[in-house]
Design a binder for these strands. Structure first.
Lengths: 214, 214
DNA sequence: TAGATTGTTAATCGATTAACAATC
DNA sequence: TAGATTGTTAATCGATTAACAATC
């Protein structure tokens, strides 16, 4: 049973870091951690950490000792839904698509890519990283039949909107978008943009600032 | 000459979207756009768009017509540094590393991966997507000699901190981190985390919410 | 001109941080 | 007990949005 709490997007994005930190602590045999020490290591404010953890933890932290590591791990995994896997299809088997298909870490985070789609005849029907590549025209049928909720877009920008329309028309509820195009979708469909260009912009600006210092 | 404006991280991350929008408009032969229409299409507030553009634009927008498309494109590209390319090295030639090496879009965003590194004997000395893979022990020498500023980490989590230390020790100024580990680096080094786990968390939660509605 | 659009100043909103009492 | 750590309430900070005069 999940608690009906709603974290802010910011808090949500911190969760994987807490989880990673806690798992590492567990490996080292540590049984409880304080929000103060987490904050210090993750370079966050300690009150912030306390609030984040309080939001998803089933039990309160204990003064003096802190939070129980094992319990907190369970709570976060439970909250983030890492235990009940999400089935997804991937569209676009280029170099990025292949990398996503081959990324075995996703399963740890509850994502299971069940099939891939492409229009390129030379790729179709191949099996890549254990997943079969189907022709794009078979997407709708397969997604509907298997009740798949997530579509991953790894096609070049010019085809992204068409693929999104197809996915939405097939009943998908969330799209993980690796193209740079801002997709137009109905309100009930979530689009999660993976915007590498924005990251590069940040890197670029930092370098410029560092150069100017000297 | 760049203006010495400092955008917020949020504003900075919107820039690639503006750029993509403007390039598309240019292709369609549109010569000027209003912040109102950009806002509408990108689902942003119009005042926000106006402020963002005012911050990086060399000329003001004109009442009635709006902003000049060509000029704005130049301004954004200039601001984001897409014109003077950043040289980078990539560490970890697994499936993700290969995808990054093969991504020819990065050059459009000013990133040029000059070499890759790995410890795996069977990969070393290969040429992948036109880039040579060197043994990791040669990283320091090569980075110093070529004055490279950016390191891309695409190794499994358990090696990420070691690689980061090596990169920092070689004089790198920014790290693009595709591992999930929170890296410890000196203050002058920027770490840009590409946190796929956080994205998955958002997808997962959205799906849970959608399910509960029904 | 009238209307669309700009840029600026003030208000709002929401997240983070500070202060502090409670507790093991 | 004393001290570390918790959780809560209030203050601060910063980004977004609203209101509105200026202008082509």
């Amino acid at each position: 049973m999940n608690k009906k709490v709603t974290l802010t997007v910011q808090a949500l994005q911190r969760m994987p870091y807490y989880l990673q930190y806690l798992r590492k602590a567990k490996e080292q045999g540590i049984e409880s951690v304080s929000s103060t020490s987490i904050a210090k290591d993750l370079k966050l404010n300690d009150v912030l950490v306390r609030k984040d953890l309080a939001a998803i933890s089933t039990t309160q932290g204990k003064p003096k000792s802190g939070f129980a590591v094992n319990e907190l791990i369970d709570n976060i995994e439970d909250y983030l839904g890492y235990n009940n896997t999400m089935d997804a299809v991937l569209v676009g088997v280029g170099s990025l698509g292949r990398a996503l298909l081959g990324n075995d870490e996703f399963e740890k985070y509850g994502l299971n890519i069940v099939a891939a789609f492409d229009t390129d005849e030379s790729i179709v029907n191949q099996i890549i990283s254990g997943k079969q590549v189907f022709p794009l025209k078979r997407l709708k049928g397969l997604v509907k039949r298997m009740h798949i909720n997530i579509g991953i877009i790894a096609v070049p920008g010019e085809f992204a909107q068409d693929v999104a329309d197809l996915l939405v028309g097939s009943g998908i509820k969330a799209i993980w978008n690796f193209s740079l195009v801002k997709l137009k979708v109905p309100d009930h469909v979530l689009v999660q943009d993976e915007n590498l260009a924005a990251s590069l912009a940040k890197l670029s600006l930092h370098l410029r600032d560092e150069m100017e210092k000297n």
